[in-house]
Amino acid sequence: MDQPSFIVPSSSTAQQVYDWLHDRILRGDLAPGARLSETEIAGQVGVSRQPVREAFIRLTAAGLAEVRPQRGTFIGRISVGAVLSARLIREAVESDLIRMVSATTSPALLAQLDQQLEAQREASARQHVEDFIALDDQFHRSLAKAAGHADVWDVLEGLKSQMNRLRYITARVFDHQKLLDQHTAIVEALRDGHADRAEQAMRLHLRELLTDLPEIARNKPEFFTK
C-alpha cells in the first residue's frame, strides 16, 4: 500500500485510518480476501496498533472486513444481497426525485447538469475511474438537491458501500459510454419537461447494474458472497 500522509494530530487517528482503509476498499485497491495486518498498517501510517485495531473493528461492523478465527482480519467479499438491496432502494427513491425535479427544472439546473456531463466525458476520455465515479455521484446529488432533498442522497450514500465497490470494478471493465448516454437521456427528458420519460431514463440507468453484476460475478467469483 502507498505511504499515507494524511494523519492530522488534532483529529481522531482511528477515524483517519478507518476513512483511508474504507476508501481503498471501495476503490478496490484492497481486494476482497486480502489480509489486513495491524502491525503492517500501523507501521505504514506511523501510529500505534490501537487506532488501527479500532479501524478494523469498524470495518468489520460495516461489512467491509471479516475476522477469521486463528487467521486474522481480511477484506470482506462483496455482498450481492447488499448490492441488490441498495440498487432497489436507489431506484425507488431516485425515480421519485427525478419526477420532482422535472416539475421545477430551471435553465440554471440544466446548465449545471450539462457541465457535469461534459466533465464526465472528459474523465472518461482520460480513463480516470475515480474522477468518473465522483462526477457520477455529483450528478445524482445535484438532482436530489434540485428536488429539495439533498439529505436523502446522504442517506443513500450511507447504504451503498457494497454497491460502490462494484461500481469501481465495472468502471474499470466496461465502456463508460452507455452510462454517459443514460445520463444524457435523463437531462434531455428534463430539458423537454417530460416527467415520464425522465423517470423511465432514471430507472433504466439504475437497472444497468443488474446486467453488469452477473458478468462480473462470473469472472471474479472469489470477490463475491451472497
Score class of each variant (00 low, 15 high):
100 M>H: 10
89 I>N: 08
74 F>W: 11
87 R>H: 09
98 I>K: 12
110 L>P: 13
96 D>K: 09
70 Q>P: 08
91 E>K: 11
100 M>P: 08
69 P>C: 02
100 M>T: 08
96 D>Y: 11
83 V>R: 02
106 S>D: 12
94 E>G: 06
97 L>Y: 07
74 F>M: 02
83 V>C: 05
83 V>I: 00
88 L>W: 07
87 R>Y: 00
83 V>F: 01
88 L>P: 01
93 V>K: 06
65 A>Q: 07
66 E>F: 02
92 A>S: 14
105 T>F: 04
83 V>E: 02
94 E>V: 05
97 L>E: 05
65 A>M: 12
78 I>E: 03
93 V>A: 13
66 E>P: 14
71 R>A: 10
66 E>T: 15
107 P>K: 00
97 L>P: 14
93 V>F: 14
84 L>M: 15
88 L>R: 14
106 S>M: 10
84 L>D: 09
85 S>Q: 11
71 R>P: 11
105 T>N: 08
107 P>D: 03
110 L>E: 02
67 V>H: 15
89 I>S: 13
72 G>L: 00
97 L>A: 11
76 G>M: 01
82 A>W: 00
75 I>S: 01
93 V>Y: 12
84 L>T: 09
71 R>K: 15
108 A>M: 10
96 D>W: 11
91 E>I: 08
88 L>A: 15
106 S>K: 06
87 R>S: 05
81 G>W: 09
103 A>F: 10
86 A>N: 08
67 V>D: 15
97 L>D: 01
72 G>V: 00
94 E>T: 04
86 A>F: 04
98 I>G: 05
100 M>V: 06
79 S>Y: 00
64 L>P: 07
64 L>I: 12
80 V>I: 15
65 A>K: 05
109 L>T: 05
79 S>N: 04
82 A>Q: 14
77 R>L: 08
93 V>E: 02
89 I>W: 05
87 R>P: 00
88 L>F: 10
80 V>C: 07
90 R>T: 10
87 R>C: 02
86 A>Q: 12
78 I>M: 13
76 G>A: 14
90 R>K: 14
97 L>Q: 15
71 R>E: 13
107 P>W: 01
78 I>C: 07
91 E>Q: 10
87 R>I: 01
104 T>L: 10
79 S>R: 03
65 A>R: 03
95 S>T: 07
99 R>P: 02
84 L>C: 03
70 Q>K: 13
79 S>K: 07
83 V>L: 01
76 G>K: 06
66 E>S: 08
80 V>M: 15
68 R>C: 10
110 L>A: 06
96 D>H: 10
67 V>T: 15
108 A>D: 11
77 R>D: 01
90 R>P: 04
67 V>E: 15
96 D>L: 05
109 L>P: 09
99 R>L: 03
